[in-house]
Each structure stands twice: as C-alpha cells, then as structure tokens.
Design a protein around this nucleic acid. Sequence first.
DNA 1: CCTGAAAATGAATCTGCTTTCATTCCGCGA
DNA 2: TCGCGGAATGAAAGCAGATTCATTTTCAGG
Lengths: 223, 223
Amino acid sequence: MAYRQTDNVAQRLAENRQKILSAARALVADGGFAKAQITAVAKNAGLATGTLYRYFPSKDDLCRQVFREVSAREMNLLAGIAASNRPALDRLDLILRTFSGRALKNRRLAYALLAEPLDLALTEERTRFRKTHAAIFARVIEDAISEGAIRPCDAKFASACFAGAIPTALTGPLAPVAGDMSADDVLQEIVRFCFGAIGATPPVHRKAVNADTKSNTNGELHP
Amino acid sequence: MAYRQTDNVAQRLAENRQKILSAARALVADGGFAKAQITAVAKNAGLATGTLYRYFPSKDDLCRQVFREVSAREMNLLAGIAASNRPALDRLDLILRTFSGRALKNRRLAYALLAEPLDLALTEERTRFRKTHAAIFARVIEDAISEGAIRPCDAKFASACFAGAIPTALTGPLAPVAGDMSADDVLQEIVRFCFGAIGATPPVHRKAVNADTKSNTNGELHP
DNA sequence: CCTGAAAATGAATCTGCTTTCATTCCGCGA
DNA sequence: TCGCGGAATGAAAGCAGATTCATTTTCAGG
C-alpha cells in the first residue's frame, strides 16, 4: 500500500527543522555566521550532518533562512512603528531609538546582521535587510516632508545615508567602545545626527519600543 | 666564489614585483578582490604561480599590499586637505567632495575598497582605511567646533556616522543608480546631509580636488 | 665553455570546508 | 510479527582555492 506520513512523523520532522534552525541561530548569535558550519550546527541540533540536507538543500539556504528569521523580527518592529499614525518625526525618533536600542542590547547578533564579513549568499540577504531599512526611513522622511515638518530633501538619498551611518556607529570597529559612551548617549547622538541631517529638531526623549520582555541574548525568536 | 646579485638581476626582481602588483591591481579594479586569485594574477603578470611566492609570502600579503597602495593614495589626498589652513568647514566641504567625487569616478575600485565582501585579512585592511577616514573627519569637525563655526557635538561619533553614510550612499546596492541622480547631485546631497548632521550650513559650491589628470579607470598608481 | 647558486616553473599536494550516498534504523499497516 | 519505504547516519568524496617543491632555466664569474 502507498506510504502515508503519520502525524507523529510529520511532527517530528517539524521539530527537527526547528532544532536545526535554533541550533544555527544560537551559533550565529554566539559567534556570527562564521561559526555556523554544517558540522557544528548538526552537532548542536543533535543530528547527523547528512540529516540537515534532508531539511535544507544547502548550507546557504539554511543560513539565509536564519538570517531572514532574525532580521524579519527587527524589520517588522520598525515597519509597525512606521505605519502608526503619529506625526512623522515622532515615528522617526521612535524608529531610530528602537533599532539602535535593540542593536546595542544584543551586539553580537547585531554584528552578524550588520557588519560581519559574509559570503555572497548572505551578503545578498543582508542587502535585502538594509534595503528594507532604507525603505522604512524613506517613507517616514517623505511623510515628514508632506506634513511640512521639514524642508524638502531627497528622502531616498537621506535614508541610504541613515542605513549606512547607523550600523557603523553602532557596531563594528568604528563604533564607540562600551564604556566610552553609555547606550543612552549613543541613542541621543544618533537621533541628533539623523534629525540634523534632514534639517529637523529632535522631539523630547521618548522610550524605545522593545519587543522582548526579558533580556534575550541568544537571538531566539518567540513570535 | 660567493654569489653576488647583479644590478641587472636586482632590477628584474624589482620589475617583477611591480608586474605582480600591477596585475593584481588591474584585476581588482576590474572585478574586485574576488577576481585576484593567485593563478589569475600570475597569468596576468606573465609569471608562474610559484614565482609569486618568491615575492610575497602569501596571497593575503599580496592583497593587503594592493589594498594599502590603492587606499593610501586616497587617504593622503584627504589628509592633505585636512591639514591645510582654510576654515574647518571649507576643508570639510572639500574633503567630502573630493572623496565622493573620486569614488563616483571609479565606482568599481570604490566598491572594492568600500563595499565588496572580503575575507578576514582584507576586512582588517579596510577597517584601517575606514578608521583613517573617520579620524580625518573627526579632526576637521573638532576644528570647526573650536573655531566656533558649529555648536559642540561628539566629533568621534559624527565622524563614524560619516564614514558609514558616505560609502553607503556612493557605492553598493543602496547607492542611487547612475541616471537616477547625476554625480553633481550626489555630491550636493552628501554635503547637505553631512553639514546638516553637525548643525552647519554648507558653503557655496567649490571644486573637488582630483589628483588624476586624465580619467583613470584601472586603479593604477602614478606617484 | 663550465659551474654553482639563485630564480622560475607548474603539476601535485594540501586544506577546510560542504555535500553525497550506501547503509542502517525506525514506524506503520497488514 | 513481518516487510516496506521513508528517515537518519557519518564516513568518504568533492571542491575551489592556496601553497609547496623537485625540477629546469638563467646567468655571472672563473
């Protein structure tokens, strides 16, 4: 008779898939994508190397998936803020603080997403991520212009600058070393810088959005 | 009797070394560091692969050398402007235009230096490069502050933002596509953006410094 | 012209990974 | 309990480069 997959089996498969993704995520959050070798992921997931290939066609696919899942969470958060109906400059302020605040809270992961040297496939994925950021910035800047809150400027251009400046200021070798500047100072400066760049005045301080309840250092998603 | 290197030979050795560096440079300027494989460099230089190892201990060393030579030219140009004795904001304007103008004139090479995904060794080299940029920016910003031309701000921080924003806006996937914006528009926007970010007003337009007389697309140095 | 020593050669080797695949294991329905 | 087919395994093969090294070539000095 024809083989039919049992619920039992289907569930185990799904679990394994998750195990693999979690294992990879954990490695990435700990040591960047460089640490996410197939063998290490398999070991961490409690499976044999060959088994991973029953779940993902290649290492690249697996890593891309991890990158997407981790970055999607960030992007959705920002997109949500961008779509709210506050004044544009309030939204911008909140987006900047949220993005930066989260990156500072989990520097290792932020480094992996934003600054770590990656291979071609993942660089492509990162590009998507950065383009999305830029699009979110651009949208809010355009709103600010049409609200008359700031003088017109090239929103696309300014948003590309934001998307370049913020990660550099937050992560990687040019970022202020911890202790050099407090996280709050950094947020403050980022907002000041970005608002200035588009000729706006920063609103009064406002708390950043943070989806995590407790501190979350392993990059796990809990949707 | 003991072997003594002839002038003749010494000269050939020096020439070969240059041939290798030029070949590598040409490949990089054409297709980025990814294209600079040992075999390709050797072929381009008209030498055997093994021969390269008599001139450079490893591929990494060779590539680092290329990176340094190419980037040194840029940095010196900027450093020269920074050290001149005009008003700080004039210098900043000139530096921004020079840097950006040159990058736009040779996009492929700029991409290799600023945005191409690289391995660890070259990423390290790029970091040096970017730190130097940032230091140049920081210095001029500080000067502007002490001249009283702008309100005090964290110059280190702002310069890191510049060093992130400018390459992003010029090169790589977020940069405006050619035809979308003219090179002049881009310069204009960069200056506007950066000056705004530190609370300054851009001076009137001024010609960028460009060390090249004729258009120079292969990244060759002519010191 | 001969010789010794450096210089050049490029095919073979090495390296760290990813990916494959012949084999074994396991769960289900008969 | 048996047998079938999918699932899991992990040792071996592949791969894309850099790197080595036994051999050949070149070249001054004798």
